[in-house]
Structure formats: C-alpha cells, structure tokens
Design a protein around this nucleic acid. Sequence first.
DNA 1: ATGCCGTTTGTTAGCGCTAACAATCTCTGT
DNA 2: ACAGAGATTGTTAGCGCTAACAAACGGCAT
Lengths: 344, 344
Amino acid sequence: MATDSTGTEQRQPVMADVAKLAGVSHQTVSRVLNGAPHVKPDTRDRVLAAIRELDYRPNSAARALVTRRSQALGVVSFDSTLYGPASMLDGIERAARSAGYFVTVTSLRSLDGRSVQEAVDRLRDQGVEGVVVIAPQTSSVSAVARLSSSVPLVAVGSGDQARVPMVSVGNRYGAGEATGHLIDLGHRTVHHLAGPVNWRESQDREEGWRLTLQAAGCPVPEVERGDWSARSGYQAGLRIARLHEVTAVFCANDHMALGLLRALHEAGRAVPDEISVIGFDDIPEAAYFTPPLTTVRQDFGELGRRALELLVAELEGGARSAPTQLEISPELVLRRSAGPAVRR
Amino acid sequence: MATDSTGTEQRQPVMADVAKLAGVSHQTVSRVLNGAPHVKPDTRDRVLAAIRELDYRPNSAARALVTRRSQALGVVSFDSTLYGPASMLDGIERAARSAGYFVTVTSLRSLDGRSVQEAVDRLRDQGVEGVVVIAPQTSSVSAVARLSSSVPLVAVGSGDQARVPMVSVGNRYGAGEATGHLIDLGHRTVHHLAGPVNWRESQDREEGWRLTLQAAGCPVPEVERGDWSARSGYQAGLRIARLHEVTAVFCANDHMALGLLRALHEAGRAVPDEISVIGFDDIPEAAYFTPPLTTVRQDFGELGRRALELLVAELEGGARSAPTQLEISPELVLRRSAGPAVRR
DNA sequence: ATGCCGTTTGTTAGCGCTAACAATCTCTGT
DNA sequence: ACAGAGATTGTTAGCGCTAACAAACGGCAT
C-alpha cells in the first residue's frame, strides 16, 4: 500500500525500462540477456549496468510464451515420504538443476492408471516440457505404457515391458546375489519375505530369489508377504519364528527386515546364529540394526539422475530414438545379519 | 517428422481454433474456461464440445503473462532425502495441490545464507508466487530473516526470532515431556544426545531438556553430540556405554537413538533395564527398534500443510499481516525403551 | 572513390491469453 | 408499443518477450 499511494507507481521494471536507461533498443537488451553474438562489449556493459541498477528480472512467462519452452520438468512420484522415492526425487532435482531445468512435483497416494494419467495431464497443462514418472507398481507401469502422452516421458522403476524409456535397478540380479550368498553360506534353502504382489520390484526380487534357488537345486519354500513396512515385516516375522526349519530369510526391503529382526528377537531366535537375514535397499540405518543388516544396496539417487539424463537427451537430442531401457546394478553389502548355517 | 511433412500442419489448437469451431468469439471460450457468469448454457455446451473435439489445452504461459499469476509455489528444502524434510515436502505438495497450486522444488546441500538466497531468487525468476523455506539450521534461519525478498515467504522449521511467518514444532515442550517422563520414572538425572550445534531444532531440544532438569532439581550432565545420523548415535553410544552412572538418555532424534541402542546392545547394557532411551520424531520404524523406542512424535506432514496454508493466506488474503508464528505440539509416545530406574 | 560484406543495432510482428469496454439482444413495466 | 435494465456476446488492446527482417555502420579490395 505504501508504494501504491505514492506517485511513483512501483511496477516491476520490464525490458523496455532497461533499454531506455541503457540507451538501446529492448531487442539489444534481449540479446545481452541471451548471450547473442554481435553485441559490442561497451553496449553490453551499459545494458548490464542498467539491469543491475533497476534490479531487472526477465519475465519467465513472457519468454515461455514466445519460445515455447518453459524450462520446467515434471515428476510424478509415489509417496515421496519413503526413502526410495525421496532419494530418487532428490537425484532428479539435482540433475535437473544442473541441466538448467526446474522441477515441479506432484505426488500420488494411489498409483492406479487414472491417477497417473491425471497427474501427467496436470503437469502438462502447467507447461512442463517432459515428465519423469516414478512408477513402481505394475498398475502404474502399464498406465505409463498406455499414456496417450503428448509430452516426452521417462519412467523410473522396475520393469522392461513398458514402451517408454525407463531406468531401473537390477532387482532380479540383486535378489539372486542375496539368495546365492545365503546358499553359499551353507543354508539348505532360503525363505523369502516378499513385497506387495502388484509391485514390479517385488515381483522381480521374488523371481530372482526363486530362479537362484531352482538353479542351485534348493527347495522353494512358500513366500511370506508384506507391504514394505516394518510393521508388516514384524507380523511376517512372528509367523516365520514359528517355522523351525527356517535358517535364512531374504527380505524384499530393509524396513521389513527390521520388523522381522524385531519379531525374531522377541521369539528368542538369534540372528544370525539361528537364522540369517538379508534385506534390500541399504537404507542408511541398516548398518545400525541389531544386528547390522546384510543387504543389497541400490543407488536411488543415481537412478533419478540417470532418468533425468534420459529425459533431457530426448528433449534436446531431438530425434526420439527407440525406448531406451537402462539398468543399474545393485551390490551386496555384507554385514552381520547373515552367517553360516551352523546348527541345522 | 511424419506430421511435419504432411500438408496438415499439426500445431496445438489455440483458443481461436476452439472459437471458430464453436462459432463464437475467443473471448467467449475464455469465459467458459474461467467459469465467468452470463454465458448461455447452450453456448457453453458448444464451446465445451469444441474443446473436447480438438483436445484443446489452455496455454499456461499466456495466461500467466496476462494475469500475472503462475499458480506455482516454490519450496526450498534441505536434503529431502531425510525423513523429516521429505515428509514436510509431501505435506506441502498435497496442501498446495488442493489449494490449486503447483510446487517447484529445489533442494540444497548446504544451508548457508547465500545458497538459500540463491535458491529463492532462482524460484522467483521462474515466476513462483510464493516460497516455503524448510530452514532447520540457524544459519538458514538468519538467512531467511535477511532475505531481501520480493516474494511472499514462509519458513518451516524451528525458531521464533526470524521476522518471517514461520511454523514450527514445540521442540522445547517435546524435549521437556521426554525428560520429565524419565524423571518421573525415578531416574536421578537424564543424559542428552544432542544434534548439531548449529541447528535450531537441536538447540531448542537441548534447552527443553536442560530447563526440565533444572526445574526438577536434577544435575545437568554434559551433553553428547551427534549429527542426526545413526552412525553418530552409535559412536556417542560407545562413549555413553562406558559411563556407569548413566541410567537414562534423551536423544535429539530417532536415528541417533537407533545407533545408541545398537552401541548399548554391543556393550551388553540392557535397554531399558539398565538404561532408558527416548528419541524424537517417531519415524515409522521406531516402533520396531530393539527395543521399541519411546519417542516424541512430531507430525511433519501437518507442519508442511500448515506452512502452505499460511503462505496461501498471505497470497490470497491480500493484507500482509504481522509475521505469524505457529507452533505445533509434539506428543510423547510410550513404548518399551524407557522404564523405571530400578537398579540405581 | 565504389561497392560488397560482415558487424552491430533497430523495427515490426506476433506468441495465446484476459481485461475492459462496446454492442447487441431479451425481457420487463407502463 | 417503447424505454430501460439486465443478460449475453464481440472487439480491441495489451501482458513482456523473442524471431525475423531491415537498416545503418564500419572496413576492405578494387
């Protein structure tokens, strides 16, 4: 109000104001701003000085309108409260920034096809140039595949069936490493605490576990199933503790492994002496579980980064090549929760 | 290419196209789109039909240019990989969406004044209408206070000295509850594993602990200090395990408590029989620690939501009232890691 | 000197939308 | 039947910027 009531109407300076102050045309100001060639150093300096003096800021909407480029990318995420999605988002944002883009996020509670489609549409309406979909559930994977998308789109998650570029973790491989390690340790077989049925990641890890067991000629026990949460791991652990033949459990993620560890502890089953446990993800806390958790490390940040690079390549490379599928290898991290099968 | 080479140039439909198809002026299309009054139902229907037929999408840049509103808000976050910031971000995003805004994030590695200032500038240049700063460190708190901000700004974090609207958690209160509970349990005094010195949250929790101790006439032992990570909690735990007079520890967050628990376990110090432990945050895993962690719950999502509401109020309420300071009360959650001081 | 070419600057048209106002149409009361 | 008040629609003028072209200004070879 103070400013409004004065005679000196305080509107934001525009390019023309800068031009007038510098004694040039607005186009020359634009040239300086965009680093166009053929501007005399002297002129450039005067323009720059005028910009500083007025504290001029280019209007991004006006620029976007005429260039048809918003410098904004969208991210559709699923529950960015979880460590995985949060880390990916972080990686995406960092990569985007260094590539000169802004990131607009929208995070979903449910990952059905309609929600994903809606979120992408919303972002597109807002003018993003491309979208990264963090799409871990099978429903969303197919949703992404079906997207009648008019924006370039990259998915990050697990899977290889979608017809969009995608970067994912070698879940089968990682699960195989974990399972194989347990077998090498002398366990007759390995039980599995799987994630929700409708998640690709869950399916792939289960498959990697099963295949490895079969390849080693081990019996394939029935799968226990959780929902990724420590709570569900605890409940599964209560059931597992009652099964006396169990000597090794591969958990589909670290949080469930934590719950499992807790249940086993309460049931008086020693880890790793009686039962070995391996997780998946390597969350920062895993090394401080009781006992420290042997797990499969995946680099979420890298995942996000690569997804973004793919998107930018598509955006700027022009030629939309065939959908690229990128896979990042996870790595087994040995700690104390898995040991030799002593007393069988 | 396929589309380019054909005679039917496939450019995105604009408002004029819709207008022509519906047999009205572009302004009427605009009216329908913006729900303006005085449009005949029949006309509206024709326009809507034309929009559907052409799959027309309004151009947000053009609208932003003329209305001077981008419908976008910015969030400056610190390491959105951590549970707290990630949850706040999530809360902010959800609240923003339901208020009709988009959220552009940028996350910082370091939280010094310059970085914060830069991030806010970047967002402002991109055209956001307001900014939420997740500002937990004292350096950033003062940075925010100093911001020569031309955008409405709300901080979320801890503190009350900044001259910007801010929503925070009652850290002193929560720490007092935790400490008081331990004293009530019969402990002669309570040790404290604090967070980094330069974080407001850390300072406030320490202060709450100290004040409560003093009020109860308990001796105030020297503070152990970590960096929020489980690793640092573990290291502090190693030191604490050697101190035989310790019977109760209040940790400034759950992750450090986890590390502490692990160290105590390794040192053969039973929790809670020998030593009681209380954390802060109530991360979803806390209930599955060994033993389940008694802790102070704070609702990060709510924090984010409230911050956003404050920002929107400022944006739409017009009258920029005096900086509001909002505090949300945390709540002590009783679990098994804290018990009576039996053997003193 | 003359013309040609590359450099440097300015001018003109929009980009696609909304705000403001003008024009028309449709009722009502008298 | 006719003025006046609303309801409904159209017309015009930008928002602040960049692209495309035009103009002016050198320098150089001829």
